[in-house]
Amino acid sequence: MTDHHGAAPVGPLTLAWVHRHLSPDERIVGTEALHGGITADVRRLTIDTRDGGTRHLVLRSFVDPSSVERAEEWLNREADALALLAGTDVTAPGLVAVDPTAAHCEYPSLLMTHLAGRTVLDDEGLEARVPLLARQLVAIHAVRPAERPREYEALTTADTVVVPRGADTAAWAAAIKVIRRPAPRYEGRFLHRDFQPGNVLFDVPTARSAGARITGVVDWAAASWGPADLDVAHCSTNLALLHGPAWGQRFAEAYEEAGGVLAAAAGERLYWQVRDSLACSEEVQVVARAWREAGRAELTTRAVEERLDAYVTGLMDALG
């Protein structure tokens, strides 16, 4: 069974594993590769149901050798997050099954329910979507797990930052100096840890996003415990690179307008903003490619690097 879009087929062991988690008389009749996955292959499975209708499930499989060694950790973390979010105000996929060590599948895999909606990465309608994103993130941070998930990962160090060609070297040197300092103290929150437009599904009834609503949040493999500022900084960086540097600061403002609480001191906020934007410097090429595959053809690696440089420079200029 070959995926649409020419993706590699789902292996027979994985198909058999999925089938064991279907209802009697259901069968898999199609698979379709979904865009946007960076660390894993994501597919929508079409299932024929006993009443003659269809339903969909989503299969995430870690097939890249560089990701397989951490797949067990990531899949267990995502499975725990999906179980936690069931019954909360945060709409996430429902967990169906997980095979984190590839005991049954060709690759470590997770099977979950399919959510309606689509990702929206266009500039048009962004002003209406940003407050929705902010309110959704506030709701995520309001989740209080009975058992605290593992601590967040920083994802970069001062010594691994990749300064873009032609960047403002003085601003980047100052930014790198910021993250050499110890992390500020913070009040922990439940974090998505990769909250950004590519992981949020929307129902958009009109071209200009009037009446848009969020239908769910996906990709919980990095769910963890840490400062709200870090999730906000991550979405801010992504918005700055997707839509222009000014949108990074606008998202932080929208988060507070929605009732979210960030670090009180400007220097502490800057630490998390800079830490996330510098982490992005190490994966610009991968991120840009994913966005181009999703329809943003103009976002070449160079274009994204230039926006990242402008964003980092703006953060440091604001510090004075």
Rank of each mutant, 00 (worst) to 15 (best):
A102D: 09
E153R: 14
R289M: 04
V204S: 01
V58P: 08
C105T: 14
G87P: 02
P184Y: 03
D41Y: 03
R55S: 05
A221W: 00
T101M: 08
E268S: 06
C105S: 10
G6K: 05
D159W: 01
L95N: 13
P108H: 02
R289N: 01
L95A: 14
V138Q: 03
G198I: 06
W74Y: 14
G244T: 05
E282K: 15
D122M: 03
L111W: 01
R60Q: 02
R289Q: 08
E283L: 12
T31K: 11
R208T: 02
L85F: 13
D203F: 05
F251N: 01
L133Q: 08
R302N: 15
A8F: 09
R250H: 06
Y271H: 13
H141C: 06
L241T: 13
I38Q: 00
E283Q: 09
L191M: 11
K177F: 00
A97S: 15
V42C: 11
A233V: 13
H4I: 15
F202D: 10
R213F: 09
E293T: 09
L278S: 05
L132V: 09
A167G: 05
D89Y: 07
E72R: 15
W220C: 08
L137G: 01
T301L: 05
D64W: 02
A8N: 11
L242A: 14
E253C: 12
L155V: 09
F251A: 00
R181Y: 01
V18N: 10
G30K: 06
L34P: 06
G260A: 02
A170V: 14
G11I: 06
L110K: 04
S236H: 10
S281E: 04
V178G: 02
H21L: 03
V120H: 02
T237R: 05
E147Y: 02
G11A: 08
